[in-house]
Design a protein around this nucleic acid. Structure first.
Lengths: 345, 345
DNA sequence: AGCGGAGCCGCAATCGATTGCGCACTGATG
DNA sequence: CATCAGTGCGCAATCGATTGCGGCTCCGCT
């Protein structure tokens, strides 16, 4: 275990520790004569000196560490967000402390306290819920906070989100452009804002095309795949002509819809076109491959990190909120078998 | 921004900071009279005192922070591992600093230095490569290291892995049990130990059944899906009868194999059965759904964290290596369309 | 009353790096 | 030769929490 401290380096270079500190700091290098800097650098190299970020953090009041709180590490959508954050931090000398809140306000509180105690320079919270607002407000007095993915309306906390209303509109436009007129949506639970928004965007866009939206009851929380199957089945068995296209509020519901169609002997997209949401990795591998709306996870992470860095540099700044546009990824489930989908990879 | 320090708490409680420190430390609580402890606790609560983990870390030489280095945050297999680690850390007062090496030895070196500078108590490295050995050895002199997922043979660094040889044998047994005799494997790059082992396990198990393994050249690093397609295509077009079953070294290669089969007008599992590896989330949703070998990611993370914690508590200890058994998940790609696969969810 | 001992707690040093202040030295100038 | 500007660098304080050491208090016992 090495225990080389700044003092050791200074001794070897024959200077005072304070001089060594300045010589090793790129910003302060000019305060020391060039040959002294060289001598100190050499000594540091020879001893294998490794600065102590803890001690430095104590003195400077800055840890160059950023906290990330995610609701669920298992959610595949989180990986690109975290990656986007990491990537933006890279090269700025920052690292990320990561913690999981598991959609539990108590845990959220504990986790935020823990991060505050570690004096992180800022915190990015993905997937905040309404119940988390108290904890977030408290933490905000100690450390700058940026929300990602979900936001808290009226909280004034800067948030980087994706635009789900626009995502709903994209889905609507896509189906209309492909000639569909009898269109339904398989809704996710309404108490989650992102589902509500994509439902609203979809419906209002269809209205602008003078097309009514066929609504079924809203899906329960889980298992979400079963809900997709159940709702699709209701559409197929209720009176009147079934829709020619459905918008499933996420990819798993879409897969459930596939299963319902298959079990009733209907084909997709031949009888009913299906469009999903999220562009889960599996979407490219279902049968048929699933047209879906891709959310800009990586960019979202980058923007959140960028906002956090700005808040660190100027804590007075209010911080800007931002909503990133999703992208439609056309695949076979709405295009038919022989049309070539445009790959978006 | 609060700046309540231990001194403030002590002043309010009318005691010396050192007493306050002891009163607030559960391990030292007995060194202080009960009513004093109460008074200090009350003062801390009223002031909203939040200990400074940085200062504490400096003095104690322990940061209660663990570093995680992952090769690729986008790899879906990583999420459960990280989650398992997090979960084990939870309640022990530890948190995880996470960083990405991106399979680049230079980055690995930088990242490890960075973690060492932050004085993390231990580091878990998932997905180490041979080229990383130098960096790991150097880092090991500063901080205990535990490998996860991949290990470095002969390095003596404790490693928690899954038993890929056994995984290969599982795959072989499964295919043989289903009557296959002409069997090939689509190999991943051989310089990664886990690919090598699953290849060996598979081959030796087939040998024990007196069945030769049809080998094709080894796959390149990426894009791995294309490699699966390319190798499967080679098998289909080379002289002689093609195999009736193939073992793809991961699920993406298996999907590539699906594509090669489809483009040559062969069916799966009718003409060729395919078995994958990893049980990627998509495996349940491919067409046909993919029989595969599931790796115990979550448990692996927990065990790695456990080992790391033991090393922290006793740095002299060598640290135990461990290999966790994978599980075969039968689905349609080897069972045929009408047999009901046993769900493993 | 005096002594021993246990229990509490304060003092001051410590962890390692950073930084405001100011001394010392150089060289130029009057 | 004295003074001044200017540069280079050392001293000591600082960040906040922790802890070894030693002192004080109080109790019980003789």
């Amino acid at each position: 275990m090495s225990k080389v401290t700044l003092k050791d380096v200074a001794a070897r270079a024959g200077v005072h520790p304070s001089t060594a500190s300045r010589a090793l700091d790129p910003d302060k290098g000019s305060l020391v004569r060039v040959d002294t800097v060289e001598r100190v650098r050499a000594a540091a190299r020879e001893l294998g000196y490794q600065g102590d970020a803890i001690a430095s953090g104590l003195r400077r009041g800055r840890t160059n560490t950023l906290g990330i709180v995610v609701a669920d590490l298992g959610n595949p959508f989180i990986a690109p967000v975290v990656r986007g954050i990491e990537n933006h931090l890279e090269g700025r000398g920052l690292m990320a402390l990561i913690a999981e809140s598991r959609d539990d306000p108590d845990r959220m509180l504990r986790v935020l306290n823990n991060l505050a105690a570690r004096r992180v320079d800022a915190v990015i919270v993905t997937g905040a819920r309404n119940g988390d607002e108290r904890a977030l407000r408290r933490a905000q007095r100690q450390v700058p906070i940026v929300l990602a993915v979900r936001y808290l309306p009226g909280s004034g906390i800067p948030a980087i989100t994706h635009d789900d209303e626009r995502g709903g509109r994209l889905a609507a436009d896509h189906l209309v452009e492909h000639g569909h007129r009898r269109i339904a949506q398989l809704r996710g639970p309404h108490d989650i804002s992102s589902f509500r928004e994509r439902a609203d965007g979809f419906r209002t866009r269809l209205q602008e095309h003078d097309i009514p939206t066929i609504e079924v009851e809203e899906g329960a929380r889980r298992p979400i795949l079963e809900e997709g199957r159940r709702l699709m089945d209701m559409l197929l068995t209720q009176q009147g002509e079934p829709p020619s296209a459905v918008f499933a509020h996420n990819d798993l519901m879409a897969v459930g819809a596939f299963e319902a169609l298959a079990s009733r002997g209907r084909s997709c997209p031949g009888d009913v076109a299906v469009i999903g949401y999220n562009d889960t990795p599996m979407a490219a591998f279902t049968h048929p491959s699933l047209t879906t709306v891709r959310l800009p996870g990586y960019e979202l992470g980058r923007m959140a990190a960028d906002t956090a860095v700005m808040l660190i540099e100027d804590r007075e700044q209010p911080g800007t909120s931002l909503s990133l546009p999703p992208v439609l990824v056309p695949r076979h489930s709405t295009l038919g078998w022989h049309a070539a989908p445009t790959p978006q990879e």
